[in-house]
Computed example of a mutant assay.
Amino acid sequence: MKISTVIVDDEPLARKGLAIRLAEFENIKLVGECKNGIEAVSLIPQIRPDLVFLDIQMPGLNGFQVINKLKELNQPIPLIVFVTAFDSYAIKAFDVHALDYVLKPVDEQRLKEAIDKVTINLQIKQQGGTNEKLAKLVADFTGDDCEDILRKLANGETLTSSSYPEVLAIKDGSEVTRVPVVDVQWIDAAGDYMCVHTADKTHIMRRTMKELVGDLDPKKFVRVHRSAIVNIKYVQKLVSHISGEYHLILENGEELKVSRSHRDSVKQMIKS
């Protein structure tokens, strides 16, 4: 499968360097180059490439504006891999549904990883309607382990019907930390923020308790009171006190009070 590809970058040396790198991949067919965003908006609808390596900071129209302009013109958006010298754009790159994001100067291994991801994605698209849900998951990247989903489909493995993400994407300034849900021991609220506790670190994310509860599998996580959720996997025991209060003891020694309104559901989870 040849992947028709366009390079968009206002730096001639950057375009030439990437073209040389891409020539090493047998499945990449370079079909066009653009020196700015305006040229890209004109060329992409004409030749409809499978893939665009898109610089972000360009005169006229930047990379994000190119995508927005194509949407305004009701043009199909090819797979986008952003290539830029500025890592501060990482979060926004995924917000506009980029498949991947690599930094200049482009590392050889990192470029290979990006092309592998593109290849798998295109293979899945060719499989037709049965994978529409997956394609949406990949396009709407919000923290799910999309690469794992793509790998399973490519290998013919069965996908579970669970809509719960396997990874929490936690934004911190210009960085995004991917925390496996299975490693989350418990979560508690601190004002407008949520503290996500793993064995070795506490991550801070700006989400409401209600939003977070909706993303966690109720068969694995139980709410113990208004401002705390616990991964039942890490519960060592449930202790009742003379006062009538119940407390959960986690494997790490953490002790959490169970409120009256959540006592029955906690007991049920402990017994099951």
Rank of each mutant, 00 (worst) to 15 (best):
V6P: 04
I7Q: 01
P12G: 15
P12D: 12
L13Q: 14
K16P: 02
I20W: 04
A23D: 10
I28Y: 00
E33H: 02
N36V: 07
N36L: 06
G37A: 03
I38H: 01
R48H: 05
D55C: 05
M58D: 08
P59W: 07
P59G: 11
G60Y: 00
N62K: 13
F64D: 05
L79N: 11
D87Q: 12
Y89Q: 09
A93N: 04
D107S: 09
E108K: 11
E113W: 00
A114E: 03
A114S: 15
I115Y: 04
K117T: 11
I120Y: 07
I120T: 14
I120C: 06
I124K: 10
Q126R: 14
L134S: 04
A135T: 12
F141D: 13
D148F: 11
I149H: 14
A154T: 11
L159H: 11
L159S: 07
E166W: 05
G173W: 00
S174D: 13
E175R: 15
V179K: 07
V179A: 06
D183E: 10
D192W: 06
M194I: 14
C195V: 07
R206F: 01
R206A: 12
T208E: 02
T208N: 03
T208C: 03
E211G: 03
D217I: 07
D217S: 05
K219H: 11
K220S: 10
V224D: 09
H225Q: 14
V235M: 08
L238I: 13
H241R: 15
H262K: 15
V266F: 00
I270Y: 02
